[in-house]
Amino acid sequence: MPMVEVLDLEKDYGKVKALKGVSFSINEGEIFGLIGPNGAGKSTTLKILATLLKPTGGSARIAGYDVVKEASKVRELISYLPEEAGAYKNLTGKEYLEFMAKLYAKDEAKAREMLELGMELSGLGERLNDKVATYSKGMARKLLIARALMVRPKLAILDEPASGLDIVNAYAIRQMIRRFARSEGVTFLLSSHNMLEVEYLCHRVALINKGQIVEVGTPKELKDKYSAENLEEVFMTAVGANISEPIGGEGG
């Protein structure tokens, strides 16, 4: 059974059709990337999977549970990092992680273990005792990713985890995700508009444009198929060729 199964997902915001039949599936332990330009529908897809929005059509299952009908079950399995996220300003970084750990852990010992993992993952050291209000953008993002990962979810849904950060912070965050995925075997679904970032991190990618999946496959498969140097080229060619004729479901 795949970890994530998305079938013909549609979402309308009033008149705006954000998703027009998106399908893909993710296997357990995979790092899956959803890539596409701004406004393609990446965040909308991830929000539906994170049980925040309800689809107007189609369905999505996580570990077999329907994201609409069994939302509370799904929430126990996932952890979601929004594209734009913050932490409670009046809490310290450590208090924030502790608060989250207590909500996910079943007992004290487990909560402590999660907290320790979170503190280590964040790499914030002593600064964890300072209020979140005093953190830089990069520090806050690290704290949030640490909190998303420390609970060892079945599926981590990260919306543009490194966007808007400088090279050093973005690199550190990619390292953190890659190392964690290897050591813990957590399944990842992440979105990005940075094709190179995705190539570096993901086992498989789906190209999304204007609410439709254009291609799905491993970076290598896609590059071979389009005889392209990198995913950027793949994307440009794929979009140019298939703009009105999307390929849904499993690619390659």
């Binding site: 929000k47 994170a50 049980t51 925040l52 509370s72 929430r75 126990e76 996932i78 952890s79 979601y80 990092l81 929004p82 734009e84 996220a85 913050g86 932490a87 409670y88 300003k89 989250m100 909500l103 996910y104 949030l144």
Partner: peptide, 14 residues
């Protein structure tokens, strides 16, 4: 305002 709502609503809390 502080962008904590989305995270809050995906937590395993009724």
């Amino acid at each position: 305002e502080n962008k904590t709502l989305e995270t809050l609503l995906t937590l395993p809390v009724p």
